[in-house]
């Protein structure tokens, strides 16, 4: 038993090493004063300084962030409306719309990217910032629906009726009673969409035009001729950002879990209904 425990400890450490080694390498190199990655020239913060004065990187960064923000906000609005609408649909139309929504998640990114490229050119849209935004909205919406849907299912079906019974018109009932209940799902959906958008390369690669690059696209074009050390600095910063984002999401879901634990009544009702 003890042997098994020790073995699993060693195994976990090895897997973690494997997963984190490249990230550690990036972060360490961001402090390397030598430009070549083959040599170690001592500690420096130069690359962090250079990063902020590199207009190419800064432009890509701002494209990445604004596309991520805009597309997530649009996706949250359309996606939340869609989730509420789908939830109230009859079985058959519900199935149809849901499978439509999940298609981009199930499909390979490269196919989604190519298919969007085709529709943009068929519609006569010039590839650039706008098509990039449309593409990101397209693959973000499913993540919002996916996060909001379970919250709607958890909702006490009488809640909305109770609000109306107490005199709230439908819209007020929705915003005052339903919204607060599903808002954790909306926030999770937003964060998920945001990170998916930041991380995307393949779909952006096919749907953007000349002159408009996200960070991923820029890194891709650099990768084969050697990446500028500023990018290492950027990746270290991004790592910290992602880490804090993840912490927020997880604290949220931990709170959610606690909250649903404190509702034994609804859990019991579910168990007995089957």
């Amino acid at each position: 038993m003890k042997f098994f425990k020790r073995l699993s400890y060693v195994y976990s450490v090895l897997i973690f090493l494997f997963l984190y080694a490249p990230i550690v390498v990036l972060i360490v190199y961001s402090f390397n004063s030598e430009k070549s990655r083959a040599k170690w020239g001592g500690l420096t913060l130069d690359w962090y300084r250079a990063l902020f004065s590199n207009s190419e990187i800064m432009r890509a960064l701002s494209t990445t962030v604004t596309i991520a923000l805009l597309s997530s906000v649009i996706a949250v609005v359309i996606g939340t409306m869609a989730a509420v609408g789908i939830y109230n649909m009859r079985r058959r139309s519900k199935m149809a719309v849901m499978s439509l929504a999940y298609l981009p998640m199930l499909n390979a990114d490269i196919v989604t990217g190519v298919s969007l490229l085709l529709i943009f050119s068929a519609l006569g849209l010039r590839l650039g910032y706008f098509t990039l935004l449309l593409a990101h909205v397209t693959f973000n919406i499913p993540y919002v629906i996916l996060s909001v849907m379970p919250k709607l299912k958890q909702l006490d079906p009488n809640l909305y009726e109770a609000a109306q019974d107490l005199g709230a018109p439908p819209a007020t009932a929705f915003f005052r009673v339903v919204m607060p209940e599903i808002s954790p799902g909306i926030v999770t959906g937003f964060l998920l969409a945001f990170t998916m958008s930041i991380d995307d390369f393949v779909i952006s690669f096919f749907t953007t035009g000349s002159g408009v690059s996200t960070l991923s696209i820029m890194i891709y074009s650099m990768a084969r001729r050697g990446i500028k050390p500023e990018i290492n600095a950027l990746s270290a910063i991004m790592f910290i950002v992602v880490l804090s984002l993840l912490l927020i999401i997880n604290l949220r879901s931990a709170n959610d879990a606690k909250r649903s634990d404190s509702r034994p009544v609804s859990a019991g009702a579910r168990a007995s209904s089957r």
Partner: peptide
Amino acid sequence: WMNFLLRTYSW
């Protein structure tokens, strides 16, 4: 959730 190009590049 770290940029996947960067990680691959690091390899």
